[in-house]
Structure formats: C-alpha cells, structure tokens
C-alpha cells in the first residue's frame, strides 16, 4: 500500500530537480510521438535545440517570443496564487494591445520618454479593468471566474475583429484587417542590434522581479498568498478578501495587458487579429511550469519559447507536424504538476 504523507518542508535539491526531471520525462514521452512520424527523436531534438538556441539569430528570436510569455506568465502566476482562476490572459492581452493602438496610433503624441510609459500604463489599465468584471462578479455574486474569463476571451477577440474591419481599420492597409501603426514615439526601441529583441524584454524581467518582491516582502503579497491558501482563514484574520481579489485582478490583468502593448508596440508595430498565437493561454502553461514562482516564470517562459521557436524550424526540416511543440508544452505542464506532488508529499510504502 502506498500512502501520501505531507511534508513540512521540501529540501532545495528536490524542489529544483523535481521539475527538471519532469520536463525530461515529458521530452522522452514526446520522443515516442516523434518516432511515430518516422523521424529520429535524437535528430529532432538536436534540430529543435539548434533552431532555438543554436545561433545568435535563434537566441534573439527565442527571447523576442519569450517577452510576452513572461508577462502573461506573471499574470497567471499572481492570479493563481490567490486562487483567482484567470484564464482570460488572451483577452486581457488584446485589451492592452487595443488600448495601445487606440491611444498610440496618432491620437496622442508625447515625447518618447513619456509616450512609452503612457502606452504601457494605458494597456495595463485596460487589461486590469477587463479582469475586474469577472473579479467583481466573483466577489458579489459568486459567479465562477474560470468560465467568465474564458468566455471574455472570445468576446474580446470578436470585438477586436469588428474594430479591425471597421472603425480602427487602417485606410493604408490595402484592405487587410489591421490597425494603423503605433507612432514612432510610442515604439519600444530595439535593445540588441540586428534583432527583434526590444525594450519589452527588459520591462518583462523587471516586472518579474517586482512581482517577486511584492509577493515576498510586502503586506499585499502576504495577503494575496493568504487568500489563496485559505480564504476563510484569511478573512477571519482580518484580511479583506474581496479587496485582495480586486487588487490581484488589477495586477494580473494589468500584466497581461502590458504583454499586449509590448507585442503591438515592440514586436509587430500594429494591431492584427493574429497578434497573439495564444500568448495568453501559453502564460498559463508558463506559470504552471514555474510552480507560480515569479522569478521561475522568466526561465519557464524562455524554455517554452525555445520549444515553440525550435519546433518551428525542426518541423520544417523533418516533416514532424509543428503541433508537436504544443504537445511538448502540455505534457511538460502535466509532468511538472505531478512532480510537484513529490515536493509536497512523501511516498510511504508499507
């Protein structure tokens, strides 16, 4: 008979090696899938690694793609800490991108050192306000936020679709459904020459450190964790549970909104319907892989980004469907989830 016994504390080596082992196990499982396509798994992973980190260009592409995923990963991590199940990162991402487009494509002109922070603030506000709706519904009427945040993704995407075919459509776009570009003052500058890596990466990493410090050293962070751990006890101890949920929602939605600003004003330059290949959803995987730790989110976002970027070039070379990257990500998330059991519980055989 196997029994699970809760651990008081987990040794450091275990909490570090457990997720790594889990990811390795996931890669091994997916190797079977790759072999099914007739390709050599070793060669495939070799090409994947090369495509993601094998050259300066590959590394910068991986970092560019990781940038929004760090931010949406932080958004999911901070919300999940408070057990606010925000699955609406995708919608908040587009809300941020929309706000940046609305204000940044010519409506307002400020010098760059004001324009960039202004757009980021606007995007954060838009994302935060979008998540405020489900948070208030949860607080006031106990409406389950999983479903409301998920459904809002579809609503926001259709709304963006409408704007891009109507009011926000760029008359210079030759008929494509895309918005006018962000003016030069609002564009996030490149930080590495001859690459697409832009200021968004710095913002994302700073955000990760700030979120970590907030969660670790401040009363707010303590309250967020307390509400997530046991909302009833936190309320009994005098923590305003509803207030904390609202605060978490604003922070989480805001971070996802900044991801949208970073993509529209940094990577792409203008808003389209395919601005995000699922960055909001990927953020959930990032956060889960990082066990909701804000600093680990950075590493986990870079890792997932490497999988996506590497799988793109690998699948072109070997005819393995590119969806293999999504399978690897999903398998890793589930494997890490299981490995988390071992850091919280001890197996007892008897």
């Amino acid at each position: 008979m196997i029994r699970l016994e809760p651990r008081e504390t987990a040794p450091v080596w275990l909490s570090l090696s457990a997720p790594l082992t889990a990811v390795l196990a996931a890669l091994l499982l997916c190797a079977l899938l790759i072999m099914w396509t007739g390709a050599s798994a070793l060669e495939a992973y070799g090409l994947l690694f090369k495509g993601a980190l094998g050259s300066r260009f590959a590394i910068t592409e991986t970092l560019t793609r990781a940038t929004p995923m760090i931010l949406t990963g932080l958004a999911a991590a901070i919300a999940f800490r408070a057990k606010l199940w925000n699955i609406g990162g995708e919608g908040q991402f587009y809300a941020g991108a929309l706000a940046a487009t609305w204000l940044g494509a010519g409506a307002i002109t400020l010098p760059p050192y004001l324009m960039v922070p202004f757009l980021i603030g606007a995007g954060a506000l838009a994302g935060g306000l979008l998540l405020l709706i489900p948070a208030i519904l949860k607080n006031r009427l106990k409406v389950d936020e999983v479903v409301t945040t998920l459904l809002l993704n579809f609503i926001v995407l259709l709304f963006v679709n409408y704007l891009l075919e109507g009011p926000l459509k760029d008359p210079m776009s030759m008929g494509w459904p895309q918005a006018a570009p962000i003016i030069d003052e609002g564009v996030l500058p490149a930080i590495l020459s001859k690459s697409r890596v832009h200021l968004g990466l710095v913002i994302a990493v700073v955000a990760a450190v700030l979120v970590w410090a907030l969660m670790r050293f401040t009363v707010w962070g303590y309250e967020i964790r307390a509400v997530g751990y046991n909302a009833a006890a936190a309320g009994f101890a005098g923590i305003g549970v509803n207030k904390t949920i609202i605060l978490t929602a604003l922070l989480s939605g805001g971070l996802a909104g900044i991801a949208g600003v970073s993509e529209v004003a940094g990577t792409k330059g203008y808003l389209t319907l395919d601005l995000s290949p699922g960055f909001g959803y990927a953020g959930i995987a990032v956060a889960m892989l990082a066990a909701l730790h804000p600093l680990a989110v950075v590493a986990s976002a870079v890792f997932l980004s490497a999988i996506f970027v590497g799988a793109d070039s690998m699948s072109r070379a070997l005819n393995v469907p590119t969806y293999i990257s999504d399978v690897i990500v999903a398998t890793s998330v589930l494997a890490v989830l299981v490995s988390g059991m071992f850091t919280r519980f001890r197996l007892r055989f008897r």
């Binding site: 699955i87 889960m288 399978v327 990500v329 589930l334």
Partner: peptide, 10 residues
C-alpha cells in the same frame, strides 16, 4: 486546463 492543452494539441 492541462488536459485541455494536451487533448487539443494531440
């Protein structure tokens, strides 16, 4: 959510 990711990508 993990199952949804796995099932749809598979």
């Amino acid at each position: 959510i993990g199952i949804t990711m796995l099932a749809s990508s598979l």
